[in-house]
Amino acid sequence: MAVTPQRRSQDKRTFRTDAWWIQPAVVAVVFTAFVVYATFRTFENNYYSAPIHLSDLYQAGQVGDLLSPLYSPLIPIDWKIWGYHVSPAILILVFPLSFRLTCYYYRKAYYRSYFLTPPACAVRGLGGSAYTGERKFPFILQNLHRFTWYFAAIFIVILAIDVIRSMMYHGGGWGVSVGTLVLLLNVILLGAYTFGCHSCRHFCGGCVNSFSKHKGLYGLWRKVTYLNERHQLFAWSSLVWVSLTDLYVRTVTSGAIADHVFFRF
């Protein structure tokens, strides 16, 4: 029965011996990558919808409108501040961004990865007993999450319209291209994310105590709960896919590749 020299120290950050830092690190890297890309695209203010003069196919009426989700809905105003063209994406992104920033899942992710409060379970993070959580400014604003959801829900409708518009060909008739499917998957993932929101779950039945007295609400609540249990999955998949959707639209509209049309009807 040997006595090891190591004394139990309350100050030791953690006794965990596994690689607890991997998860927060991965989250930080992916999240930062998205922020960098989205910032770049926002200020690029170009290549987000098919510019008429560039596309022969477009002029021939062979494609529909392909609009980047970062720039949807299309705002036909050109603002200039001190001679600088303000990107309409700024006006648009403020809504999905505020939705994601106050999202219950993302809060967990970035409190852990960026604020290190705490970085992982049973690992001491930053800040001491001065911590106030979401009781004081600025984090008390997180409690307004539901309002950002209202706008996020409107955006799902707008993005769904974009999918339809991508199928409406200017030469008349309809068609389905790779771009259509990319936009479709985008709206599905975003929809699954948005309608799996905890605030949405609260409106759709979470707020009542007796489900048997609100049968319709209960059915809805179960569906939202299904999505809510996969909130993390859809949070990340929709985030990544939004970026890829934008990248695809950028590649097509910059003229690098043509949007392959599967069939027309």
Binding site: K108, T117, C121, G133
Partner: peptide, 15 residues
């Protein structure tokens, strides 16, 4: 009870 103090980092659920 101070529910707003929680920053939902979910360690309670994990353990």
């Amino acid at each position: 009870a101070g529910v707003l103090a929680c920053n939902i980092t979910k360690c309670c659920t994990e353990v």
